[in-house]
Design a protein around this nucleic acid. Structure first.
Length: 931
RNA sequence: GGGAGCUUAGCUCAGCUGGUUCAGAGCACCUGCCUUACAAGCAGGGGGUCACAGGUUCGAUCCCUGUAGCUCCCACCA
């Protein structure tokens, strides 16, 4: 029914007064009439020329200050061993942490990652599962070694002057001192890891597992040693994997250089960006279809500077359009050249030392750095008049992720894992969803990579890491064994007289990923001891939460290792988070200085606030545009919960008063709503939509519970509440706290302990989440009555608002459904009005009633004769008629009738019926108005 | 160069297998407000040609094609 408000009379009495505090002066000017209001209280003040008097405030607990209780509860959890897990009869729920670098400090990416893991693990714990979250750190060989080298250098100690043993001592010292900071920081966030299980990838048992796997793979023929083109980091003097190289676009030059044709004065011009590699040239290649070079068939060219005579080879690999169409071939220093070299059996001349300077094989510029050598060779070529031209050119150059040095493609002897066969089950089980990726879009990327997987270079020319268990014999051959004693036995098969001293272990260590790919297994000691109870109980783990950027070099490899060593997946679900970015969309990084310090944020907004802030904007796989205002929102939510708690637990109870009818209604209504939401939240978790789950709890608590439920049941000031309503409210609160706990562990624990009566569990972490009373499918919307009351309150508020703003405005547009005076009292309270009266005379077919506010009264009537009303009705009628005809179009359309499913047709029939009855009643009302 | 994905309100994003209860949420914004839990708050409100152009269909935010812009992954042409 349409309601029109009419200003009846103004009144300036009735208000009980406005409350002021010294630190909260009113932010808006007072109405003139307000002067009358401040007549009692305990203090007085002048504000805005108006005499203001404060009244006594109800005694309440302290302000919401997260810092006052967070540490306390974390300690409590640790003391009670709440996070500790041992195998038992319950279903296991396991997460292994993506081990952060031991050198690392907490950044926003970790915050996001670990918040998600903690939410999942805490929820599982509260669902009665035996939840185990295994923490730990990764030895990060390149990064850590670089740190230690730098630290020693600052003390004037050079790595090259140290023995391996002494260097490792320094490294361990460094690790003991600086490692593990990040784990301490995670505690501030509330991470509920089982700290008793903390692992480090270089611990004794972990290393043993790594070595065992290496030996095993070697025996299976999956590991081989070979000369390969690798990404060489001349600064760290080690090979790095493809994944550790990043490409950057740089301004460089393209040099056009003359190669004289042997025995003639003629020359071929070759374009190159790397003239220093000329010294390693062993051929020049042109496209066989390139007519301008047909005359080169059978000819030889003279490489400038070194004057080496090299053949011209013809291969379609060469792009005729690029440069001059002639390509110099340096098999030792370019991957493609290397492959051409293999194809045409060219000589391979490696002209670089490990540190990027030129070696004797270059013949010239020996000992000079590659970039200086480039300048020198250009000078020399100019002098010899061998440069045709030099062009500006933009190309991409690979840099080492760790040291930022320009990567040198270099031939070297390295250890490799054959990946092709190992990858088969890992691909299959992701494609058939045995292992689920969230979001699923990463399946494509995963598939593409696994189908084109290349052999994995696992050796690193470093000291910090697991040393490759290959032992060389004096004749250059080697044996692979788990320790030197076994190696000796193997060696004796070939040379019975050989001694331990004659064996020399490989100097290299293994790629860090070669230990982390075993992480979900080795943390439970499943490699060394596949039968131990932990691995049997906790493996496969449930969820892995990590960043998409390490999908290949970590996630995929863990899956491979899982099938190879446990015959089963390492985890069932992989939740891939986004990258945390700043407001401008830039990746958060230390160098940009755009990353807030997570600990500062925690201090400012509380861990719960930060957690909520991170989760509010982090749908799976999407980047997370982080802004501090989000944590503020999280903090505000905590404040809301805090205050709602104060309200619910500060009422005096009176066992003798009966439950008001509106409270009864509210309790029934909220109970259903809570159940609906429990179901909804469960669904969100099942789909890994954590943001949605949080948002559902957020709205449930803030809007429905605080905004409606509490306002309805709230007794008048200093009046007692009835027992029934109070108990229902406290139970609701308890259930809400449990729903909130995985997201906001600290505040919920704090309030849990302040709940009246005895909680069944000493910590909310150990309480069991409530199941919804009704299944999803059975939810019926049967709180019509409550909805009506709410809708009526809204309508009155709206009218009041409009009339307050503009007392002359008589027509407002809102609807009252039906009106029952059963709920008068609550309507008055929530609308802040003094009286609702239906005693006014009403015209036919209308409901009229008087709403008295403090300052004036308005009449809400069902219908008022006036043009505007008529106009509105006509508009509504037009819409309905249009709607009706569109429905009729469908129903009269043969194709629709034959093609559309019955369900849809039924909907359309109902729409038709509904629209027709609405049209009928509208037309009736318009008729009445016109009469 | 190859592949994947995205484009919906000022911002961040939901919209399941096409069907007016589908054009939504949170934040931000605007207006009014110290109202006895909470101004870290309350009440009310205004915002969108669902990137653009075609097509399929009875019907398109949803399916197809093309265009533009953005993001990511892979390869790396000297």
């Amino acid at each position: 029914m349409v309601v029109v408000a009419q200003l009846v009379r103004a009144s300036d009495c009735g208000s009980e007064g406005r409350r002021f505090e010294p630190d909260h002066p009113p932010q808006t000017p007072l109405h003139a009439s307000s002067q009358l209001l401040f007549t009692f209280g305990s203090w007085q003040a002048e504000w805005g020329g108006i005499h203001v008097i404060k009244r006594q405030k109800m005694e309440i607990s302290a302000k919401f200050e997260p810092s006052s209780f967070e540490d306390k509860w974390y300690q409590y959890w640790l003391e009670k061993k709440i996070f500790h897990s041992v195998p038992d009869q319950r279903e296991a729920y396991t997460i292994v942490i993506p081990p952060p670098n031991v050198t690392g400090v907490l950044h926003m990416g970790h915050m996001l990652n670990n918040t998600i893991q903690d939410v999942l693990i805490r929820r599982a714990r509260m669902k009665g599962k035996n939840a185990c979250w295994v923490p730990g750190t990764d030895h990060a060989s390149i990064a850590t070694e670089a740190r230690v080298v730098a630290k020693l250098a600052s003390e004037g100690i050079m790595k090259k002057d140290l023995s391996r043993e002494v260097f490792l001592q320094h490294a361990w010292e460094w690790k003991e001192k600086h490692g593990g900071i990040i784990l301490e920081q995670l505690k501030k966030l509330g991470a509920s890891c089982d700290w008793d299980r903390t692992k480090f990838t270089m611990e004794h048992d972990m290393s043993e597992s790594v070595i065992k796997v290496f030996v095993d793979l070697y025996k299976k023929g999956k590991i081989y040693r070979g000369v390969r083109m690798v990404n060489w980091d001349p600064s760290a003097k080690t090979a790095v994997s493809d994944e550790e190289v990043f490409h950057k676009e740089v301004q460089s030059k393209l040099y056009y250089i003359k190669y004289i044709i042997e025995g003639t004065e003629e020359f071929v011009t070759v374009a190159t960006t790397r003239p220093e590699t000329i010294l390693g040239d062993t051929a020049v290649c042109v496209n066989p279809n390139d007519e301008k070079y047909l005359h080169l068939k059978g000819k030889k060219l003279i490489v400038p500077i070194v004057k080496r005579i090299v053949p011209v080879i013809f291969d379609e690999y060469v792009d005729m359009e690029f440069g001059t169409g002639a390509l110099k071939i340096t098999p030792a220093h370019d991957l493609n050249d290397y492959e051409l070299g293999l194809k045409y059996q060219l000589e391979v001349i490696d002209i670089f030392n490990d540190n990027g300077t030129l070696n004797e094989k270059a013949g010239f510029y020996v000992g000079i750095d590659r970039f200086s050598a480039r300048d020198k060779i250009i000078d020399d070529l100019k002098q010899q008049n061998l440069i045709v031209k030099i062009e500006d050119y933009t190309n991409k150059i690979g840099y080492s992720e760790r040291t930022n040095a320009v990567i040198e493609p270099k031939l070297s002897v390295q250890w490799f894992v054959k990946m092709k066969e190992l990858a088969v089950p890992a691909l299959e089980n992701v494609m058939n969803d045995n292992i689920q990726l969230y979001p699923t879009k990463f399946k494509n990327t995963y598939k593409h990579w696994m189908e084109n997987v290349k052999d994995w270079c696992i050796s690193r020319q470093l000291w910090w890491g697991q040393r490759i268990p290959a032992y060389y014999l004096p004749d250059g051959s080697f044996v692979v064994a788990e320790n030197i004693e076994t190696a000796l036995l193997l060696a004796k098969q070939k040379y019975p007289q050989i001694t331990l001293q004659e064996l020399r272990q490989d100097e290299d260590v293994l790629d860090t990923w070669f230990s982390s790919w075993l992480w979900p297994i080795s943390v439970f000691d499943g490699i060394r001891n596949p039968e131990n109870p932990d691995i049997k109980y906790y493996y496969p783990t449930n969820d892995l939460v990590t960043a998409p950027e390490i999908l290949f070099f970590w996630v995929a490899r863990m899956i491979i290792a899982g099938y190879e060593y446990c015959g089963d997946m390492p985890f069932k679900n992989v939740y891939l988070t986004g990258i945390v970015r700043d407001k401008l969309g830039r990746k958060m990084s230390k160098s940009l200085g755009n990353s807030p310090d997570p600990l500062d944020l925690i201090n400012k907004y509380g861990a719960d606030g930060v957690r909520v802030g991170m989760l509010l904007c982090s749908p799976a796989g999407n980047d997370l545009p982080f802004d501090e205002s989000l944590t503020e929102q999280g903090r505000n939510f905590g404040n809301k919960i805090w205050n709602a708690f104060r309200l619910v637990n500060n009422w005096p109870v009176d066992n003798n008063i009966s439950q008001p009818v509106h409270s009864k209604l509210a309790v029934e209504w909220f109970d259903q709503l809570l159940n609906q939401n429990i179901n909804n939240i469960e669904n969100c978790f099942n789909d890994y939509r954590l943001s949605d789950a949080l948002m559902a709890v957020y709205k449930l608590f803030w809007d429905e519970f605080s905004g409606w439920y509490l306002e309805i049941i709230k007794p008048d000031y200093q009046k007692p509440i009835d027992k029934k309503t109070l108990e229902a409210s406290q139970l609701f609160f308890e259930k809400l706290l449990k729903l909130l706990h995985p997201f906001m562990p600290f505040i919920t624990e704090e309030l849990w302990h302040s709940m009246p009566g005895k909680m069944q569990q000493e910590s909310i972490s150990l309480s069991i989440l409530d199941q919804a009373k009704i299944a999803n499918s059975q939810i019926i919307d049967d709180f019509e009555e409550a909805k009506e009351v709410i809708s009526n309150i809204r309508a009155i508020r709206k009218n009041k608002n409009i009339v307050q703003k503009d007392p002359l405005k008589l027509h407002v547009n809102s609807k009252l459904i039906t009106y029952k005076n059963t709920y008068d009292t609550i309507i008055c309270k929530l609308c802040n009005i003094s009286e609702v009266s239906t005693a006014l005379p009403s015209s036919q077919n209308t409901i009229s009633f008087l709403v008295k506010t403090f300052e004036f009264s308005i009449v809400l009537e069902g219908l008022i004769n006036n043009e505007e009303e008529l106009d509105k009705l006509n508009k509504e009628l037009d819409y309905l008629k249009g709607f009706h005809s569109s429905v009729m179009n469908k129903l009269n359309n043969e194709k629709f009738m034959s093609g559309a499913p019955d369900k849809v047709k039924e909907i359309e029939y109902n729409k038709k019926k509904d629209a027709e009855s609405k049209i009928f009643s509208l037309e009736e009302r318009i008729k009445q108005l016109l009469n």
